[in-house]
Design a protein around this nucleic acid. Structure first.
Lengths: 127, 127
DNA sequence: TTTATTCATTGACGTTCGTCGATATACAGA
DNA sequence: TCTGTATATCGACGAACGTCAATGAATAAA
């Protein structure tokens, strides 16, 4: 990338050599809008709720369960963690909008929120 | 858990009352395969690399840059963080396979790895 | 009411994460 | 060579995270 016929190789002069404006620098101007800090914050919060091996397994088990729902007592054993820990993860997934909770009797049933996973995947493919 | 056909209301007897098989319980059997612990671990690691507002902005800026590449010096200002911190985030994104690094002169140019974001989004829509 | 069961919450602990300043490394120009 | 610039690495700090035992809240049967 060294400069053509110029003594000092700066990113500015290199950009000039490439035909861009002097203040275009190495990376040039942005060709489109970038994500706003606020949007990045909310999107990261949603991704972070999924970015845990235990929570991914919980989502997978709920999705694969008959009727697409599962209660805590059936999730704690396949995951191999204590009941409070499983409830903690389920709360995170629920607050992030991936699971919904409905209590029937003494049991709490969690089920997938339709379209929630697709909604978090969509921005990734359109980057 | 308690036995079947006992006066105590267990999830088994509740399932019977609902017309399901006795061992169907509340969540019933799994209707398909669930993610393996190992796959959940690697997938969570990839998601975790993206689950940060700063790293999402870095990816967005690189993707929107002319030529689809950007060097560290141009990324540190719009993000508003120190250069070591930006380099740290870029390393995480690179090790996760989302960015590639090519050094030309004293500058390090980062660009998006084609298909990397789509690859991490695909498993989400197919759950 | 008493007992038993399911689940959520609390408090604590060790680990990981995000950030910075300081320093090291690599490269280009003089 | 020496100087300046761009980037990576190191060490440290506070914050956030994952986990558990203990406890609390709610429900149902006896």
């Amino acid at each position: 990338m060294t400069a053509i016929d110029l003594p000092l190789v700066t990113r500015e002069t290199a950009a000039v050599a490439l035909g861009s404006a002097p203040d275009a620098a190495c990376c040039g101007p942005l060709t489109r809008e970038t994500i706003s800090p606020a949007d990045a914050e909310t999107f990261a919060r949603r991704l972070k709720a999924l970015a845990d091996p235990v929570r991914l397994r919980l989502v997978s088990i709920v999705a694969a369960s008959e009727g697409h729902e599962a209660c805590v007592c059936d999730l704690t054993e396949p995951v191999g963690l204590s009941q409070p820990t499983v409830s903690h993860h389920l709360k995170i997934l629920t607050e992030a909008g991936f699971l919904s909770r409905s209590k029937r009797g003494t049991w709490a049933y969690y089920r997938l929120v339709p379209g929630a996973l697709e909604a978090v995947a969509a921005p990734l493919v359109s980057v």
